[in-house]
Design a protein around this nucleic acid. Structure first.
Lengths: 228, 228
DNA sequence: ATAATATGATAGCAATACTATTATATTTGC
DNA sequence: GCAAATATAATAGTATTGCTATCATATTAT
């Protein structure tokens, strides 16, 4: 994974930024340290002023890259889903058996990110935590419908689409492939969240992973055995 | 349902308010109109000042009932889950067949609330929409662990517990009853959200309900046929 | 009628979420 | 290597938010 990604750039909707953060040192610092700071203090308390302080830069300079922190969150999460999509396609491309392919996809999507692939200034371990804790805030706003039209969620939607297709390839008669796909994505995050903050609301723990739960759920729903 | 509920009060954690909103006319107005206003403008834009304006009351008076809008949201959503629990217990109490009981429970939990039971100042149709759109904000905060210890989520947790037990009664060997229960609760809301804002991410629509999707999911997962 | 309590009005304060302006670096193009 | 262009920094300012405090005026209870 590592080496290969160095040549790949994840394409983010251009309307999410005023100036491409990948185009300068300051831009990259904004991305790198916003991930750290959001993790530390949470998205609500996070401000451009505090970020400026952290990176020894000025609030006004950050505003030249992003209109506001909401757009920054959309940028970060889009990057995450783009990265996820890349991993998914890369790892499953060569698999022809539909069941095996779906199995692998569920693993990639629902596993915990434990090591930074360190191909860039983006720490995927921390970004994964941000997505677990804050992703829902990016779409539970009054502006969601206009922002959806602007294409701010298109990478995520594409990912759900890919997963839905894989489900249909395993069972063409299954009636809810898209709902099941979105459930895997969303519940994958949610079980990780519960494991951390509400252990009494999940069976996942250090022994049992969200991947196991969801793999069992999906394959039983599709009336398939997991044969290897 | 209607008549009976008039004699029942939903018990909310006392730490969520400074003064019980059920204890006065102003308190009830706060609840009634906060539900309306949050629905109209969204939780982010909602402020006590705006609410005061709506009910012809003063910002400072509202602060005598609730410390802040976050506590108010916790109050409203706790009420919702308490109401849901009441409906669940009431409707399934007399059912002895475990499968039938679970089937009914899934229906109650995942159905759309279409009519106001109008036994009080609380509009359940609007409150259901708030829960769909804003519930995740009540727990995706940096304070979630302390607030959890204070018992602010206890009603929701009890509800997941009840559902998990019902699942185990259908299939005692199933390994993930609690995760499945929390998935039903959470994904029930999420599919409704997707139906409204991201129709391409769900198979649910005017013909297909989240209830159908989740019923199929749960019973297949438990390797059960839905026999009636 | 008086005392207690609830509500309303007003003021004020620190932080947020910006925008605007001007000054100073840094980069680039010739 | 220098001027011009561009990027960043510093400072100031504004409306709004999220409160707290104080005092005045209703309302209710005894």
């Amino acid at each position: 994974m590592d080496r290969l990604l160095q040549g790949v750039q994840i394409r983010i909707n251009e309307k999410l930024y005023l100036k491409d953060p990948e185009s300068s040192g300051l831009g990259k610092k904004i991305i790198e340290f916003s991930i750290q700071l959001i993790n530390e203090i949470g998205f609500e308390s996070f401000t451009f002023k505090k970020l400026g302080l952290q990176i020894g830069s000025n609030e006004s300079s950050i505003y030249r890259y992003f209109e506001n922190k909401h757009k920054l969150l959309l940028y970060l999460t889009s990057w995450y889903w783009g990265w996820m999509e890349y991993q998914l396609v890369f790892a499953t491309n060569s698999i022809s058996n539909p069941k095996e392919k779906l199995l692998k996809s569920i693993l990639i999507i629902t596993r915990e990110i434990k090591e930074d692939s360190s191909f860039s200034h983006i720490n995927e371990v921390l970004l994964n935590k941000i997505v677990i804790n804050e992703y829902s805030k990016s779409y539970t706003t009054k502006e969601v419908d206009t922002e959806n039209k602007e294409g701010f969620y298109s990478i995520y939607k594409r990912l759900v689409g890919r997963l839905g297709e894989m489900i249909s390839l395993v069972d063409a008669d299954y009636q809810y492939p898209t709902s099941l796909a979105s459930t895997i994505l969303e519940n994958g995050l949610h079980q990780h969240f519960l494991k951390e903050h509400f252990p009494s609301l999940t069976d996942c723990n250090n022994q049992v992973t969200p991947t196991q739960f969801l793999t069992h759920l999906v394959f039983n729903t599709l009336n398939q055995k997991i044969d290897e």
